[in-house]
Amino acid sequence: MAFRKYAAIILFASVSSLFPLLALAEDALDKPWALLNEDQRKVLAPLADDWDGLRPWQRERMLEIAHDYPKMPADRQARVQQRLASWSRMTPFERENARKRFQQFKSLPPEKKEELRQHWHDYREASPEKRQQLRSQHPEIFGVEEMER
């Protein structure tokens, strides 16, 4: 009898551990802006006007962002919100390329990553003329056109 009880507990635990995955899958359904919860609307506020025009898979990605958002410190959360709108306007191809290169960036040696961060820090601090000069000298790092500072 006790054996059946333990078996039932283990089965219950394994089935209930699937619920968060099911909940995330449910979130990915075609939800209009009005049906998002308060936290999701708060994070995805920059997309409020565009949300109902997004494709279901785009919404799914955005909801994943909203899911990861609370795990970040405030300064990174601010960056996410600042960049959300332009990110949603990028083409799927550009976003996929960006994801691949972000992973590549993470696999760089630590000193290279730090060097790149420092370059971007200096670039952000520089005057428009200096930034223009840096872009023409290092288009591979700063791009050809002015990006977000």
């Binding site: 994943e64 332009s86 990028m90 290169r101 790149l116 791009g143």
Partner: peptide
């Protein structure tokens, strides 16, 4: 830290990651 949220929160702007030249630079330095 592999989701899109972490990409958006990165020290570098997301547009740079979709830049072909940056991809080449990354390949060389990796």
């Amino acid at each position: 830290e592999q989701g899109d949220a972490y990409l958006l929160a990165s020290d570098l702007p997301p547009e740079i990651y979709s830049n072909e030249g940056f991809g080449t630079w990354l390949s060389e330095n990796t």
